[in-house]
Nucleic acid binder design. Sequence first.
DNA 1: CATTGTGAACTCATTCACAGCG
DNA 2: CGCTGTGAATGAGTTCACAATG
Lengths: 217, 217
Amino acid sequence: MKKTTKIPKATITRLSLYYRQLELLEFDGYRLVSSEKLAWLCQVNPAQVRKDLGYFGEFGIRGVGYDVRDLQAEIKKILAVNRDWNLAIVGIGKLGSAILQHQNLYIRGFKCVAAFDIDPRKIGKISPAGIKIRDIEELEEIARDLNIEIGVITTPASAAQGIADRFRRAHINAILNFSPARITVPECCLVENIDFTVTLDMLTYKLGHDIVQQYSA
Amino acid sequence: MKKTTKIPKATITRLSLYYRQLELLEFDGYRLVSSEKLAWLCQVNPAQVRKDLGYFGEFGIRGVGYDVRDLQAEIKKILAVNRDWNLAIVGIGKLGSAILQHQNLYIRGFKCVAAFDIDPRKIGKISPAGIKIRDIEELEEIARDLNIEIGVITTPASAAQGIADRFRRAHINAILNFSPARITVPECCLVENIDFTVTLDMLTYKLGHDIVQQYSA
DNA sequence: CATTGTGAACTCATTCACAGCG
DNA sequence: CGCTGTGAATGAGTTCACAATG
């Protein structure tokens, strides 16, 4: 078992992909999988799979492969998804509502337990997901009561930084930001951005320059 | 001007970020910007900005900086977003509808001009965005008629590969895939994935391991 | 003896440092 | 003189190749 090696960000992304493929393999009745097979399924190099896993321990059996179920459990531990996480969503427009109800998230243990907006016409209503839309002013209180650890921003760009600051005050230190705004947070906070236009720009760039497919995160 | 240097994928992602900041700078009345300022706004290194731009030409004025408006235009050309693109969306659930109506995409020239589903209860209806939901069987015909070049998958994972194959047959060679399924396409096709759970796994990993903020794509 | 685990080699990306130039 | 543009240096991430081993 290694210690204190710096782990590439891409390794974590891949672990998430490995996990998903392991779920499918288990569903298909596989008990064992080799790094070669798993790599093939995830469109990466087999050595990459072994190296990625090697950062965290020795999970395989030499000459045999990896136990599908055991490896799933190990990756869940590594990604800290061996338990549920409570999410708050701010900005209950079309996108916010979609995420609020997104089955993939729920199944994987990401529970959207609170919804906020500033629009008085929305506040007090029950979202189709069955969750009451609250005034953003209540964020701090609700975050504490419901033990919310991840905040999701689905507001327009102009509101994003303000919401990030409010998350900070509510001791929500991890943010998933769907707005195209780039958020500034203190060192202790985490932000991941999902920006549709950036990803589309990547596609159009490649289309415009006749670049052929590599793998993509 | 350089030739045939291989350009990092991350460079393209950053160009998209630079572009957005330039829009904001122009809106705020700036005519010039230095690599240092632009870098600061995007949370990257100034040399990185100059290097990224350097792959594509010489857009600055030494001793002065970059013309905000000119640089915008250059980046638009590089990203091939100096024109509109027509998108087809397949899978008109909550997420699909949200994307169909997403203003950020529309403003940036990504026009959702067609919507498809397999559910007979949805087919024929007009989506809130004012676009008729069509049977997936019509994809090939509509794609040709409306000159659709980018396909968006917002179906469940199980349907994703089938949709990708249909895109291929309809000569839609660029795919934005929101499903967690990993799609296989021939070399000539492009796929970019947006997978919410992968991004959330990144957050929980960092939360679980007390990792502090770096920048994130 | 097939497959893992891993140091070493290699490839790719970022940053430095300064020459080049308006 | 100040800021861009870029080769060279550094750093990070991937792949190779093979020793270790169940």
